[in-house]
Amino acid sequence: MKPLLPYPVLIAGLAALVGGLAFVSMVVGPATAGTFELFSMMTHGESDTAWMIMREVRLPRTALAMLVGMSLGMAGAALQGFLRNPLADPGVFGVSPAASLGAVLALYTGVSVQMPLALPLMGIAGALLCALLLHGLARRGGMLTLVLAGVAVSSLCAAVMSLALNLSPNPYAAAEIMFWLMGSVTDRSMDHVLLAGPLILLGWAILGASGRSLDALSLGEEAAASLGVDLRRTRTLVVAGTAICVGAGTAVAGGIGFIGLVVPHLLRPLVGHAPSRLLLASALGGGALLLAADILVRLLMFGPELKLGVLTALVGAPFFLWLIFRARTELES
């Protein structure tokens, strides 16, 4: 059961894939704007507009797809490793719904019209609030308390979001909220990248620090503790890291599902099943997948642009089902 590729080769390959897709993402425009029209603009004396589009529209979009995808992949791998459950995903602690709720409240109250950046800021505030709540709970209770609290927080956030939809002043405002919830990185600005980027990097650093403990945890909590793993510290790292990077990502991109669930599954055999090695691999895999999805969204345009979260769920769910069927003997053992 040795992995087919040596770990450094796998990482280099995935990094090259991410780089390549980022390049494609910078080059390919929406089908309706003329997929490759930028080239002809550059060679026909309109390079100012072309460069502005590259710098101000495609660069933030590409950067966010990469950052958010990597966060989802890494957090998914960390959570599955920590909970020792292949069904865990970054939504499990209710961080994503809390971030969504913050953003929805910004939309609902109209604050986002006065100040566009209020939307991601309130999303981040929602995620951090949820993380603090979980942290408070985790100090007393165990893992089960944390997951159950996550379910409760998710349900509460979903309920309040439904309430906002229910009470929204007109159908247009409701539609705006719903579209936002579907998840997208279209037309974000560099402001979004600068706002979410540092938090996302911080979240990665925190998650990365948990890596080795996750390996030890595959022997069970008692054995891990006897090996010198500080379980409480590990729990804090995983919860805080996930909340910060996924929360910040959700705040700028909306709800994007299935990346955090599917990517770790895909890559686990390739890293020899070690949770610590899976972190980086899954981050790169998540980045590549979301970049690819965002490119696909542009090429598949027939009418309004598909929302990224819709596409990942649409492709991710059947794929996940197939994965479960194929691997069911493995999962049961």
Binding site: T32, E176, D187, R188
Partner: peptide, 29 residues
């Protein structure tokens, strides 16, 4: 247009009309 910032920039408009609730992210950008 489909409400995307990119295609609108390519059309190099000197005025953009938008509804308050339509394509808010693109309008902000």
């Amino acid at each position: 247009n489909h409400g995307l910032a990119e295609e609108i920039l390519m059309q190099k408009p000197d005025l953009v009309l938008a509804g308050r609730f339509t394509a808010a992210t693109a309008v902000n950008l």
